[in-house]
Design a protein around this nucleic acid. Structure first.
Lengths: 326, 326
DNA sequence: TATTATGGTGAAAGCGATTTCAACGACAGG
DNA sequence: CCTGTCGTTGAAATCGCTTTCACCATAATA
């Protein structure tokens, strides 16, 4: 492994000079020239490990996600990766499989480990989370949840759900049911349900509390909840879901019970999943700029790391949404 | 930042002793006890950067993927992450966005950067790739392609496509068309098309070369190719696709042209996408154990890194497949 | 001429771990 | 009593880079 000293010797300078050359310090043109040649000749690349030890910065960003095989998360990480690549960082990915404790575990691991900053794609935020975040040595940005005093990039789930509910109330005649997710997930659980309820109420078509079920983000859980709803209240005419994935499950359930092709006119979701859009011609749903949220969060984080310090500090950013097919 | 020396002083031993304690070397029980206390008291964690510099190992595995927001890749990375987590490694993710040159770029970056090994989820393998892989300093495992002399975990795309083609030939009456992908992708492009053709031929229903189109893995490209096929040859009765994603696009095209609900009986794909399965009740497709391939590849890689060296060397592993809904 | 700047330079001191190595006390065997 | 093991131990040398710091020319200023 060719090291800096070798390059220095070949170029007839000190390693300090080589280091300066690499980092843009004082160096005369002729020495710069010789160093450049020597580097090409030897194929030298600097050891990021030694550099990290010395400078305390690894150019690594930890990204914690709840589940890697979901379209929304994929799009977010795509956005994150895009910015990281452009700005000379790399992504250390940690997948928690929806286990809150593994989230904390990684938060802990990353702190004492080699990352310069953290992006947390959050589902539930407990007090323990809040504590872990506050005591975090490195800057951290949340995606998907709004937490006071923490840098976040998020969507206005309440407002979006309100609009969706309001629009659907006018369009659907008959009973509307709702399949949500755990309220521990403030954004997708609490805000969406509350917003949806408020939207329906505002249109004088309040949601019957008996027609609310809880899923667990998966397609199968949406299917199960919908089957149950349909058997309990066969006269339901619409099932709104907190995620497109669960909506796909509900759709299948309706198809099974009411006949193929019925489902796609009787469900709504959140997230504007591409498959669902193509296969159904588009159910009512909310489009979020997931890629954008990854991009924005990462830029925010990197700005505080590289940047003019206080200039582009960590802050809170609410992104817009778009109702689809209503 | 509390360092090893601090712990050592507090425990009244040398830092060498602390290091040995941490790494399981010679240490007397009473000193071990004191060190343990001191570590708890100070909340010491060792600097992975210093450790990496000294030992030359970072416990990081580079994972290169063509596109992060695709179900197959998600499942593969889920499998990789699972094993890495269990065995004390972390995943450095690099997304190439289907650009072969960025693949090479990352291969290069990772070599001189801080990874102990590489998993490459491969699409096309050019000569340049082969060269880069050979000259790679760290062990590397390929997923998804079979390359001579390189450790790979892959599926038998030819055989799977053959079986699918053979089964469909018996089931479908009328013209069958095919939407493939670039043959630079040996597995998904060349092998699947060849296998499918051979399967049809074996059932005495050869594929008309005029009814073959090329997509680019995306839903939209599948849609476009199918629209074109349908307008050129309106009497087509079935469109087989090289991926489920493109099949979803083709399905939509058929629905548009022939009426809603027609598509799902007239397309096949590869990959057994969960959404597609749920929303259509299941089109003919091939199920691959993507998660398993991630698991197997990673175990293979880590075995050569940690392991009894030659014992569990890098090798080639062909995984099985399963025809669905035929 | 005497004095500052100014642009460059290399020796050397870390960064925080791991690992070699010589040495030590205790104890067994000859 | 001498010698050889055995289990432990800490001092010190690295790992490869960055970054002070003291210093040296040479050019500019007084």
């Amino acid at each position: 492994m060719v090291k800096m000293k070798d390059v220095a010797e070949l170029a007839g300078v000190s390693s300090a000079a080589v280091s300066r050359y690499l980092n843009g310090g004082y160096i005369s043109v002729d020495k710069a020239e010789r160093i450049k040649k020597a580097i090409e000749l030897t194929g030298y690349v600097r050891s990021s490990q030694a550099r990290a030890l010395r400078t305390g910065s690894t150019k690594l960003i930890g990204v914690i996600v709840p589940k890697i095989n979901s379209e929304s998360v994929s799009r977010i990480t795509a956005g994150i990766g895009q910015v990281l690549g452009r700005r000379g960082y790399q992504m250390l990915l940690a997948n928690t499989d929806n286990a809150a404790d593994r989230e904390l575990e990684y938060l802990d691991l990353f702190q004492n480990h080699p990352v310069d900053g953290i992006v947390l794609v959050a589902t539930m935020i407990t007090d323990e989370h809040r504590r872990a975040i506050e005591s975090c040595r490195v800057p951290i940005v949340l995606i998907g949840q709004h937490v006071e005093g923490v840098a976040c990039v998020y969507h206005d789930d309440y407002e979006a759900a309100f609009e969706l509910g309001h629009a659907l109330a006018g369009r659907v005649d008959g009973k509307i049911a709702y399949i949500g997710v755990t309220e521990e997930d403030r954004a997708a659980g609490y805000d969406r349900r509350r917003g949806f309820e408020a939207g329906l109420r505002a249109a004088d078509n309040p949601l019957d509390a008996a027609l609310i079920r809880l899923g667990s983000f998966t397609l199968d859980s949406g299917y199960g909840a919908a089957r149950e709803l349909l058997s309990v209240a066969p006269d339901i005419s619409f099932i709104a879901c907190a995620t497109d994935t669960m909506a796909a499950g509900a759709l299948r359930a309706i198809d099974e019970v009411r006949g193929m092709g019925e489902g796609m006119h009787r469900v709504s979701g959140f997230g504007d999943n591409a498959f669902l859009r193509a296969l159904t011609g588009g159910i009512p749903t909310v489009h979020y700029g997931y890629l954008t949220s990854g991009v924005e969060a990462t830029n925010m984080l990197l700005n505080t790391l590289d940047g003019a310090e206080g200039e582009n500090g960590l802050k809170t950013l609410k992104l817009g949404h778009q109702l689809m097919n209503v």
